[in-house]
Design a binder for these strands. Structure first.
Length: 439
RNA sequence: CGGGGCGUAGCGCAGCCUGGUAGCGCAUCUGCUUUGGGAGCAGAGGGUCGGGUGUUCGAAUCACCCCGCCCCGACCA
């Protein structure tokens, strides 16, 4: 992508309304613009990151056996009445009346709808286990939206729903999602710790919040510090295996949000030197809720002996749009964002230090063409901005690599390659730089 | 929802107390000079001062009402 043909309205100054670093940087880097409280337009750069995160989530869900579909954002109130949640959910649910005076709502979550789909279509234990997910916009009318996309009213969420014939089987489904969450966050360069959590309006008796530690986090958490060093399961993990030992390794050590924190247990189980109290951002939550939805909605399947059994359910959310902010909270410096490569909107920022100079233009065009041909995503700053502005902007938007080409270096046959994260800069031939970026 | 704050050019702000020609920096546009970490000079454009009502000869400024946004707290992917 050539910057001259892109849409990247960056800001030099901090917008007054943005208090925390991810919100500030997202506005300044031209990733989002607010349209009203807690509601944002995703500009091209932000949208590119959102899609990369979404894709990682999708891939890891599919590896764990979940199947993607897409449910609507607008739902009928009738379904929610059936589960008793229409009244229970309260004013956070955005309620809408259509032209026929039918009561509708903008979905804050989809347990009711997916259970309805399930009961219409699945009748036999033979079709289970089943795990369906979608990645769709949600709306929760938060009392106080804040922190940019970290706590918006409209947000993109991946929600998966598992259906099983027994509590034991449901637990296996839960474990698969648990492991896939560890994998998902690991791939984004995040250390997410599963913690015992409250179940809230979703219900159920088993739940974990996946939390990344950050000073600006909204949750207070208590944990055994060894959890921070626990390696996530690798890409070779098999979801057909018994995953209980992995779960045990992650849940044996104490970790809880303040809602369910048990100070006595914390002190008994964790040696003093390992007791950690911190703040964190919740990026995902898993629930096992048994028959909470299947019973009131009559979602049952025929068992081998011919009897009907209500299905055992679980649901599993990941805040996809929140992750964009959370990753920035975890990865930035004074100059701007530092994208982990797997979620970066472009891998390389190509800086032409002197647009209009024949040799520099030619060298940049050549590098741009070769990188693009090799499948490397490049944002080529071909504008006639001054060099200083280009450097600052490129640091701000945080692409992992900067390839800097100017007349001075070309004279001695070199270009400069800068690693955004380490700040390390090295001069080398264009060939060497391209080789490094494409390998 | 309780408490606090803020709305003036695209962004950051001053002016308001004490009513009288709407200002500054950055950004934008034009020209010249510059050109390797947010350049200099000269010029230009851009505003229903969040909205309404009132007070007044006169309102960005005073009063009342409304709307929007932000922060702290209680609540949540």
């Amino acid at each position: 992508m050539r910057l001259s043909k892109y849409f990247l309205p960056t800001l030099k100054e901090n917008p007054a309304e943005a208090q925390i670093v991810s919100h500030r940087l997202m506005l300044r880097a031209g990733m989002i613009r607010q349209t009203s409280a807690g509601i944002y337009t995703w500009l091209p750069l932000g949208f590119a990151v959102l899609r990369r995160i979404e894709q990682i989530v999708r891939e890891e869900q599919e590896k764990a056996g979940a199947v993607e579909l897409l449910m609507p954002t607008i739902q009928s109130a009738d379904l929610w009445r059936e589960t008793g949640r229409y009244d229970a959910y309260g004013p956070e649910m955005l309620r809408i009346t259509d032209r026929h005076e039918r009561e509708m709502l903008y979905g804050p979550t989809n347990e009711d709808m997916i259970t309805d789909l399930f009961r219409q279509s699945v009748k036999s234990y033979r079709d289970l286990p089943l795990n369906l997910f979608h990645i769709q916009w949600k709306f929760r009318d938060e009392v106080r939206p804040r922190f940019g996309v970290m706590r918006g009213r409209e947000f993109l969420m991946k929600d998966a729903y598992s259906f099983d014939v027994s509590a034991e089987a449901a637990r296996r489904s839960y474990n698969r999602m648990f492991v896939s969450y560890l994998r998902t966050f690991e791939r984004m360069g995040l250390t997410a710790i599963p913690m015992a959590a409250e179940t809230g309006p979703i219900g159920g008796d088993l739940s974990h919040e996946f939390i990344i530690l950050a000073e600006t986090g909204e949750s207070e958490v208590f944990l055994h510090s060894d959890l921070l060093a626990l390696p996530a399961p690798g890409p070779e993990v098999s979801y057909d295996d018994d995953l209980a030992p992995v779960i045990r390794r992650w849940t044996d050590l104490y970790a809880a949000t303040s809602d369910v924190h048990d100070a006595a247990r914390f002190e008994a189980e964790v040696p003093e030197a390992k007791r950690m109290r911190a703040r964190g951002i919740e990026v995902g939550q898993t629930f096992y809720f048994g028959t909470k939805y299947s019973k009131p909605m009559n979602a049952a399947v025929a068992m081998p002996d011919g009897t009907q059994a209500p299905i055992e359910g679980g649901s599993y959310g990941i805040g996809v749009s929140r992750l964009v902010g959370a990753i920035i909270e975890a990865s930035h410096d004074d100059n701007g964002i530092v994208w982990p490569e797997p979620v970066a909107p472009f891998k390389v920022g190509l800086i032409n230090l002197k647009s209009g100079d024949k040799d520099t233009d030619a060298a940049c065009e050549d590098a741009y063409a070769k990188l693009t041909a090799a499948g490397v995503s490049v944002l080529y700053d071909d504008t006639d901005e001054r060099a200083g502005g280009k450097f600052s902007n490129m640091d701000l938007i945080g692409l992992p690599w900067q390839l800097v080409i100017g007349p001075r270096g070309l004279k001695s046959g070199t270009v400069e390659l800068k690693n955004r994260k380490s700040g390390e800069r090295s001069e080398m031939t264009a060939e060497a730089a391209l080789k490094k970026l494409t390998s």
